[in-house]
Amino acid sequence: MKNYKKTDTTLWTGRISDDQLYLHEKIKCVNLENEILSKPKKQSFTLLGYTCDEGVKRNHGRIGAVKGPDHIRKMLATLSNHFNDQIDILDVGNITCEQGNLEDTQLETSNIIASLLQHQNFPIILGGGHDLAYAHYNGIKKQFPNKKIGIINLDAHFDLRKTTNQGTSGTPFYQISKENDSFNYLCLGIQKASNNKELYKIANELNVQYLENTEYTIQNKNNIATVVQNFIAKVDYIYLTIDLDGFSSALAPGVSAPSPFGFSVDIAMETIKWICNSTKLISADIVEFNPKYDIDNCTARLASRLVNHIIECMIDE
């Protein structure tokens, strides 16, 4: 694994207790170069960092998301731990992008995700650019080649730009659509101002389901729940991807493409809960966090709370 780097364990620090009161005391760091994954005896959630913003650079976005995963870890570390001993949370390190070779990084990321799924770990991937989605989906398909995978994307953008010579952070779902016979894609929070007419045309040609940000509100909760549940019913598994630039920039200033008209935390939290409760969610990621433009760690804190919320909602009762 030439692009792999083990976790910097100094990121997992904070207040010290005698009873794992904080997440940094709960997290177990695993070096994939020295340790072999095995099927866990407990319910296991595994963090993997995708320290890559080459796709953002190719898409002419503002770079800096490469440093996102470690900043999210820092904010996760200090959160209070309410998980019992039957829950494992692992950190297996980062995949890097050396010398701008995005395709190599995506392939290695896919292989690790497939291995995590094979060993019954629930992957939560920390980005990094949204080009991660192409790698993430391919990792799921490698492990479950005969299953119908549904993608639910909380995002301001379709990310359906047509590829020319190379993939970018704006092309992952178009790439997926062209490489698979079945393409099941639901976008929540799409903004007209951030997607041109050609992107809407592509979305409609590919039968993409979507709700615009004016519809994706807590006041429209019941209608949104119906859309989400109907989508989930048509697939075998769900892959959830959360682009932080879908949130209002008042909540998430530290992203690659900020927007003042993004969605709010309340509807995102509700949506995540519905998806987790479906029992079909098998993998998730959080992308486009750019600490270079964050303010008082607002976006990093939001990302860490979303990770914590996913785990809370996924725990077997």
Rank of each mutant, 00 (worst) to 15 (best):
D155F: 08
D155E: 05
A156I: 12
A156N: 09
H157Q: 05
H157G: 00
F158G: 01
L160P: 03
L160F: 07
R161W: 05
K162D: 00
K162F: 02
K162T: 01
T164R: 13
G167V: 05
T168L: 07
S169A: 05
S169C: 04
S169W: 03
G170V: 07
P172V: 08
Y174L: 02
Q175K: 05
Q175I: 00
Q175C: 02
Q175A: 03
S177T: 06
K178G: 00
E179S: 14
N180M: 08
N180T: 07
D181M: 12
D181A: 14
F183M: 04
N184V: 10
L186W: 08
L186S: 04
C187W: 00
C187Y: 02
L188K: 07
G189M: 11
G189C: 10
I190R: 09
I190C: 09
I190G: 07
Q191D: 04
Q191G: 03
Q191I: 03
K192D: 13
K192T: 11
K192F: 14
A193V: 06
A193F: 07
S194E: 13
N196L: 14
N196S: 13
K197L: 15
E198S: 12
L199R: 13
L199D: 12
Y200M: 10
K201N: 13
I202F: 08
A203C: 11
A203P: 12
